[in-house]
Amino acid sequence: MIKRDASMRPWWLPGGVVAFGLVLLYGAAQLGQSDNYSRIGPGLFVTVIGIALVGLGIALAVQIARGMSFAPSDSEGADTEGPTKLGPFLTAVAATAAPLVLMQPAGFPVTASVVFAGVARAFGSTQPFFDLAIGAVLGVLAWFFFAWLGVNLGPFFPLLKGF
């Protein structure tokens, strides 16, 4: 752990995390926290995530105040000397933006599968069919879990609606 003087510490990082958490908490305050039929409203999960982000931002600020270094260690295998690789970055951005166009026509499980496989590819995975399968299993489990909680994520597989 390398100590750095206070002027070189990334104070913007915990500030951004706390600010994002506060934005989520503000938005969650506009939503219902509970519902008559399921006792879990649309704002509950947003509130939980907002509280978690504020707490993590505060914990990060404490670590920065203690002088924690954010340089990657040799065991992480990060290339800190070379430029950022644009291909994997754009792949991750495209994968996380995929729900904007896929959610309505393809449904949650298919969209989750594509997002999982795309992000895995951005991180260097070379097994796209395996990644799609893992994403599909996680998407199906999440869809059924949220349906069990009473949260509507849309139709399971809208592509079969016409058949």
Rank of each mutant, 00 (worst) to 15 (best):
I2D: 08
R4P: 00
A6R: 09
A6M: 08
A6H: 05
A6G: 01
S7D: 12
M8N: 11
R9N: 03
R9I: 00
W11N: 02
W12S: 11
W12H: 12
W12Y: 15
L13N: 09
G16D: 05
V18G: 02
G21N: 07
G21E: 02
V23F: 13
V23R: 00
L25P: 09
Y26C: 12
A28L: 07
A29F: 14
Q30D: 09
Q30M: 07
L31F: 14
L31K: 08
L31D: 06
D35N: 09
D35G: 09
R39I: 00
G41W: 09
G41M: 07
V46L: 13
T47S: 12
V48T: 00
I49E: 04
A52Q: 03
A52R: 02
G55W: 06
L56F: 15
G57W: 08
G57M: 09
I58E: 06
A59F: 07
A61Y: 02
V62K: 09
V62S: 04
Q63C: 01
Q63R: 14
I64C: 09
A65K: 02
G67H: 03
M68F: 11
M68T: 15
S69Y: 02
F70T: 00
A71I: 05
A71H: 10
P72M: 04
P72Q: 05
S73M: 05
S73Y: 01
D74T: 08
E76G: 01
A78T: 04
A78E: 12
T80L: 10
K85L: 11
L86C: 03
L86D: 02
P88G: 10
P88E: 06
F89Y: 11
L90F: 11
L90D: 01
T91C: 14
A92I: 15
A94R: 03
T96A: 06
A97P: 06
A97F: 13
A98G: 05
A98L: 14
A98I: 06
L100W: 11
V101D: 02
V101L: 15
M103H: 15
Q104Y: 10
P109I: 13
V110C: 03
T111G: 03
T111S: 10
A112V: 10
S113I: 09
V115C: 09
A117F: 11
G118I: 01
V119F: 13
V119N: 05
A120W: 01
A120Y: 00
A120F: 05
S125P: 02
S125T: 04
P128C: 11
F129I: 12
F130N: 00
L132F: 09
A133D: 10
I134Y: 06
G135P: 11
A136I: 00
A136E: 07
V140R: 00
L141Y: 04
A142W: 04
F145N: 04
F145A: 15
F146M: 13
A147G: 12
L149E: 03
G150S: 08
V151M: 10
N152K: 08
N152L: 07
G154F: 13
G154A: 06
F156H: 06
L159S: 10
L160G: 04
L160V: 14
K161C: 00
F163C: 03
F163M: 14
F163W: 15
